[in-house]
Design a protein around this nucleic acid. Structure first.
Length: 389
DNA sequence: ATCCTGACTG
DNA sequence: CAGTCAGGAT
């Protein structure tokens, strides 16, 4: 329907790509075809995660699960442990489920629609795999591509309302002759341009292959695009978690429910998370065992849709008889601990003084209870016997 | 609407 | 150094 106004648009982009392409561990060498397993694995990891963070995870993951069969045959706990720290753990569970489905089928499908139906593969990832590993004439639109196209065509409507308009531009570009000739490179060129030149804050328009064609740059509005609808602010939630060790130096852990927040990941036992802070008495009613609990600091963590503050308590007992499982305190690296829990472990084991310091504002519930209970001068531990419940 | 983390920024 | 931002699937 629309005639091509800039026939050389993609030719310039591809010429730029030939000189400035990033070398990434999951990419094929120039002229070679990428391995679908590696493309898929990298694309799942790259969902919501930057290249710099993904790279070391990708290398370790690939060494541990070198191919589809190895991943499909692995226990889910091993996959989650290898993923720990990357976030959005539904990705790891879907990755494992997808590996089993694809191994069963004997390999990845090549069509975007078939890829799209697999666990963890949405519209973007389906097009990315189809274009990069199978040479399909499609342009996957991720955040980078969205930004590049919003600027190239000066789309001033706010996101996400502007998505259909941007998608239409991507579809028009995907069928141009230059893109048809090199579908994988076209997609990756747009990724690389967005990552290294057409950056969010200070785009380097002076070295951009689209300089002169870019509508936003001609209007001087490139740095303001794409426009984002403003986000609602995040509510606060509170919890308390417990570091309980035994005489052998093992710590009590438990596994979170498979579904939902941090699903299937390992955690220190604790209270539910709620909008109000837990008093010490309330919190310690959820302690995994009676013990001389002492306040062990506070950890703050931001999730997408709420901010969490955890009060920590620590205690030692001779022998642990609680729900959950034990792990040597020095071997927590092998556990599927999300970053939130790694912060907690770091706070407790580095024996940082509990926040807040002198002059701080929020008194921790532990400290409050400590003084109220008057169990002794200063910092004596709490003696607590949780109510059976 | 839910789901996490590291980089960036003021 | 705390707050904000970037980044797709379900």
């Amino acid at each position: 329907m629309t005639r091509t106004l800039q026939p050389a648009l993609l030719d310039g982009l591809l010429a730029w790509y030939d000189r400035h392409r990033r070398r990434l561990p999951w990419r094929a060498l120039p002229g070679e075809v990428a391995d679908p397993y590696r493309v898929w694995l990298s694309e799942i990891m790259l969902q919501q995660t930057t290249v710099a963070v993904v790279t070391p995870y990708y290398e370790r993951f690939l060494a541990r699960f070198p191919d589809l069969q190895a991943l499909a045959a692995a226990p889910e706990t091993a996959v989650l442990a290898a993923w720990a720290g990357l976030g959005y753990y539904a990705r790891a569970r879907n990755l494992h489920a997808c590996a089993q489905a694809v191994a069963e089928a004997g390999g990845f499908p090549a069509e975007p629609a078939a890829l799209r139906s697999l666990p963890g593969i949405g519209a973007y990832t389906a097009k990315a795999i189809a274009a990069i590993a199978f040479g399909a004439n499609v342009i996957p639109v991720d955040g980078n591509v969205e930004r590049v196209l919003a600027r190239l065509f000066a789309i001033t409507e706010t996101l996400p309302a502007a998505k259909p308009r941007i998608a239409a531009h991507a579809e028009a570009l995907a069928v141009e002759p230059a893109a048809r000739g090199r579908p994988a490179d076209t997609a990756q060129a747009l990724f690389d341009l967005g990552a290294t030149v057409c950056t969010p804050a200070r785009p380097a328009c002076g070295i951009c292959p689209f300089l002169g064609s870019c509508a936003a740059q001609r209007q001087g509005i490139e740095a303001t695009l794409p426009r984002l609808a403003k986000k609602p602010d995040r509510p606060q939630r509170w919890g308390a978690h417990f570091w309980l060790t035994d005489a052998a130096g093992r710590v009590l852990l438990r596994r979170r429910p498979r579904e939902g927040l941090l699903g299937g990941m390992t955690e220190l036992p604790g209270t539910p998370w709620r909008p109000e802070r837990w008093s010490a008495a309330e919190a310690l009613a959820h302690a995994p065992a009676p013990a001389q609990w002492r306040p062990a600091g506070q950890v703050r963590h931001g999730f997408t849709h709420f901010t969490l503050t955890l009060d920590l308590f620590a205690a030692e007992v001779e022998r642990i008889a609680g729900d959950g499982f034990l792990c040597e305190a020095g071997r927590l690296d092998g556990e599927a601990l999300p970053s939130l829990m790694r912060k907690c472990v770091g706070m407790v084991t580095r024996k940082k003084p509990p926040r807040p310091g002198p002059g701080g504002r929020a008194e921790s519930p532990a400290e409050r209870a400590n003084s109220h209970q008057g169990t002794g001068p200063g910092k004596s531990p709490l003696s607590v016997f949780p109510e059976p419940n």
